[in-house]
Design a protein around this nucleic acid. Structure first.
Lengths: 143, 143
DNA sequence: TTTCTTGCAAACGTTTTGCAAGGTA
DNA sequence: TACCTTGCAAAACGTTTGCAAGAAA
């Protein structure tokens, strides 16, 4: 695992790359968003839940990760700096959050800000429904 | 206050229009979204917080109200059946959630579902930033 | 050494559950 | 009567705080 970019962001903010931070970061690399509980479970025995919370908060402040809406809970995932800007399809059946590119949305959102004199600092699009896989499973059951 | 449509939805689902439900519904009419605490405070002395929660849950199930993301908390507002479909500008400074129409987004979102074989049941767009009023206040302070 | 981090325990705010009493049909 | 609904108390979560011990510079 390459922690050099992480280490750089941390050290330039007066923080060090500790074992716990490596663990939290490592648990998020190449993953779709995780709930706090999933993240805590995955790190259980390795990092205390309190440290998970503290480092998630820190990482968010440093722009290392972001929270994404998932129903009325949230999930965490590495931020655009460590992955790339995208939006989410939330499957209500299996709970997956699928990352998608959505260039068309970006323009429409910028325009809305302009129309309403609103200075946009960020946005989030959550599309709820059933993913292709769950729809497929259902079709099999019914058919 | 006209509760006839509310009564109709309730009774067609085997529920009655009680005093508490009138109160909860009434507190939401013609309002931008409220947090649970705001709603509970507004009904304090009139409806117990537990009943507020229970009826919010019921109303959501019956499509009477919807929860909207606000940061990683949520607010509640009457659903599209009792108001009209719209999206939200969340001001991070004053906390207001401003309702907007966003026709351009609707098409883009539908298309995304198609592209990914995803059956959309609902969507939510949250645009965070500073509302015109807060930006204006700030300009005054600085200038 | 000095400062940053961690783990544990305990506090907190939000939401849910159990239950007996009060309404409604 | 039979069922719904409410309020209260208490439990269950998710998250944060205080503090003393452990790691990093």
């Amino acid at each position: 695992m390459d922690y050099s970019r992480l280490a750089k962001v941390l050290s330039s903010n007066g923080c060090s790359l500790t074992r716990a931070r490596e663990q939290v970061f490592g648990a998020l690399v190449d993953k779709e968003g995780l709930t706090m509980n999933e993240l805590i479970d995955e790190l259980s025995g390795k990092v205390d839940r309190v440290s998970v919370y503290r480092n998630v908060t820190l990482f968010e402040k440093l722009g290392i990760l972001q929270r994404i809406s998932n129903g009325f809970k949230y999930k965490v995932e590495l931020s655009d700096n460590f992955s790339s800007h995208h939006h989410h399809l939330s499957c209500s059946q299996c709970g997956r959050v699928i990352n998608i590119k959505a260039d068309q949305l970006e323009g429409a959102i910028k325009q809305l800000g302009k129309d309403h004199g609103f200075v946009i600092s960020g946005h989030q699009v959550e599309i709820r429904g059933s993913c292709a896989q769950c729809v497929h499973e259902q079709d099999k059951e019914v058919g």
